[in-house]
């Protein structure tokens, strides 16, 4: 009898302690799980790098970068121009990660790229040896209405500051329609050479820069992958890859021909008159002129 009682008491205790253990486990798991959910959602939100924040040269694509950067700040210390910052909590940039802002502190494009050299994890790719191959962003002349070059004024600060001078930003001429007789010297960015250093944005003389460095994904369009540019393919192949178009034939009177890419309808020059045909090219008989026909056939 007493044995039964003891056994049931023990098993009740055991059940009680098991219940308590499970309840504690569930409580902890729920609390930690909720915290984890919040952290996960915050991490997803932090993935969006604001367009004004640029990563140091050699940074991996943003998604890889956020997995690779331990936020140690060694790049910040190694930048001789002190342009890099570690984001603090509350900034739009993921907490602790390095970035710079072109307008206030652009990358000076050091030839030895000191910010990359000591990156312990490879978040900044130490394989990048030529700063001209860095792609931190892409400069875009975003505002043609305020850029004074588009008003016909000579500025060209961005063109002249660009470290890849004459390649990443070129000045192109356009007609100044306002004056009707002058040229516009318009800056045009070429993505093939622009490193996204931001020196042009820093140098822009406007109150708010008309040329801005944007993240490449934001700045660039993309041609559908099925597009084939015939002239490029023709250049690669050395011959047309499609049957050439038949040239249009015009039914024109004698002495007239058509130039496709040129003057259009052209009246052939009349053959020089035979020597001694007369002292004057004009016949004394007016009917000769009237009957001569367009081509001057006799």
């Amino acid at each position: 009898m007493s044995t039964d009682k003891e056994t049931s008491g023990t098993s009740a205790n055991w059940l009680k302690s098991r219940r308590k253990f499970l309840a504690d486990m569930a409580r902890t798991a729920c609390g930690v799980g909720l915290f984890g959910l919040a952290v996960g959602l915050y991490a997803e939100k932090s993935r969006a790098l604001p367009p004004t924040a640029l990563r140091p040269p050699g940074a991996l694509p943003e998604n890889d970068f956020l997995a690779a950067c331990v936020r140690c700040g060694i790049c910040v210390r190694d930048c001789p121009y002190d342009i890099l910052k570690l984001a603090t909590l509350g900034e739009e940039v993921a907490t602790g990660t390095p970035y710079f802002t072109a307008r206030t502190g652009p990358c000076e494009m050091c030839e030895d790229i000191p910010c990359i050299v000591n990156c312990p994890t490879g978040a900044l790719d130490t394989g990048l040896k030529d700063i001209a191959k860095a792609r931190m962003g892409l400069a875009v002349v975003v505002d043609h209405e305020s850029c004074i070059a588009f008003q016909g004024l000579r500025c060209e600060i961005c063109f002249n500051t660009c470290p890849v001078r004459g390649k990443a930003i070129k000045l192109e001429y356009r007609a100044n329609k306002r004056s009707g007789k002058h040229a516009l010297f318009v800056p045009v960015v070429y993505s093939g050479d622009c490193t996204g250093c931001g020196l042009c944005e820093k140098a822009c003389i406007l109150e708010a820069a008309a040329i801005k460095v944007l993240p490449i994904a934001l700045a660039r369009g993309a041609l559908g992958h099925h597009y084939r540019l015939g002239w490029e393919q023709q250049g690669e192949a050395g011959r047309p890859l499609v049957t050439p178009d038949q040239e249009h034939r015009y039914n024109l009177p004698d002495g007239v021909h058509y130039e496709h890419s040129g003057r259009g309808l052209v009246v052939d020059e009349p053959a020089a008159p035979a020597p001694g045909a007369g002292d004057t090219p004009f016949s004394s008989n007016p009917l000769d002129t009237l009957n001569r026909g367009i081509g001057g056939a006799k």
Binding site: G40, A43, R47, N63, A67, G73, T88, T95, G96
Partner: peptide
């Protein structure tokens, strides 16, 4: 998340980094 998500809120690294680099 494929990111070092906990580092966004980790008080330990936040304080140490903050004391050295600025804490916001």
């Amino acid at each position: 998340t494929g990111t070092l998500a906990f580092e966004l809120v980790n008080p330990v690294s936040m304080l140490h980094r903050g004391l050295i680099f600025g804490i916001g």
